[in-house]
Amino acid sequence: MSGYFKELFGGTKSLAVGLGITIKYMVKPVVTVQYPHETLVMTPRFRGHIELVGNEETGAPNCVVCGMCQKACPSNCISLAGEKPEGAKKKILTSYILDFTKCSLCGLCVESCKFEAIAFSRDYNLAGPRKDAYVFDLKKRLEEKSG
């Protein structure tokens, strides 16, 4: 019998304590970020889709078309092409296509590039209705960015 009352009182108390906690949190300010009215800035290491890094002065891609990134990628997301103009010493990049639909953001491509030619972007607003919107022409993006 005493166990019955003990449980009754203990139980009632635990319920009251629970109500106290929720009301305490209710009067506290909200913690959510009101996306899309507010947005967060991603941390420097945030892994968005990859993008080409251009030379600081000329804006031309750092890439030397060695193909290491393409080989490192587990999901065959990267297809690139380059050509060697007459008389030039280095190859120049003619196209760099990233199929972001397959990318797992593992970072193996960025890691494998010894020329600092690719990096992660900080883009995260990447929702859309069509699949082909996520096949990025990174070379064009770079050109647009460097204007």
């Binding site: 449980e7 203990g10 139980g11 009632t12 635990s14 319920l15 304590v17 629970g18 906690i21 929720t22």
Partner: peptide
């Protein structure tokens, strides 16, 4: 708070 709200809840 976790414990008071959930663990001890009858």
């Amino acid at each position: 708070d976790y414990h008071n709200l959930v663990t001890k809840n009858i």
